[in-house]
Amino acid sequence: MESARDPIPFRPYEPGTQPPYDVPAYGSTHKRHPQEALARLPHTVTEVAGPRFNPSQFPPIPDLSAVNGKAALGERIIVRGRITDEGGHPVPHTIVEIWQANAAGRYQHPADQHDAPSDPNFRGEGRVYTDEDGWYRFISIKPGAYPWRNHHNAWRPNHIHFSFFGSGFAARLITQMYFPGDPLLELDPIFLAIPDKAARDRLVCKLDMTLTEPEWALGYRFDVVLRGHAATPMEG
């Protein structure tokens, strides 16, 4: 039986907005997607509560574009955006984790065998927090495209990986931000795995001249919506 003290569940995902687990065009899903039906789990405190990170224990890393004061190679960029929930409320003071390839399309990672140069002055990891109105910002280098072995002549579009936590563990989101006008997007099985085109297109950031700093860096806007609650709690 339900009770008035039950936590308010998160909203179900909108149909078509999340990729399925089994995507034949993306070979790594073949042996890794569950074949049994998922077990339905009404949200409890386990799903509705979630971790909180604070900058004193998890310090910000807001600039990926230099190491020890030495500038990385490539096109410097500023990425800024607002994180809200599905009710339109800003998500304040939440952690944003970022990682990406360097300008040449190479990750600072031993398993990355792509024959492209490493850049000791590029920091592949970032971490920032939203302010009280849900805004975040970091500085980086535009990542290069890179080959992967999914199919013959497969190349990932330019992208930055993001991790968000939201207000509860069931709102956890890991995604990728893409760049406008990238012709590889229409060939990418990972991007195309999202059924809904409008949802896909929201993963593409926008060039924003108000964020761009003259003589210094292009600015891109990337807004993110995290899962919201099924019902709005009574306010006041």
């Binding site: 995902y13 909108e14 907005t17 599905e86 990972i190 949802a199």
Partner: peptide
């Protein structure tokens, strides 16, 4: 209001 942002794989280099 827009729906929650779509997920993508964490990839091999997380």
């Amino acid at each position: 209001m827009p729906a929650a942002t779509s997920g993508q794989t964490i990839g091999p280099f997380w």
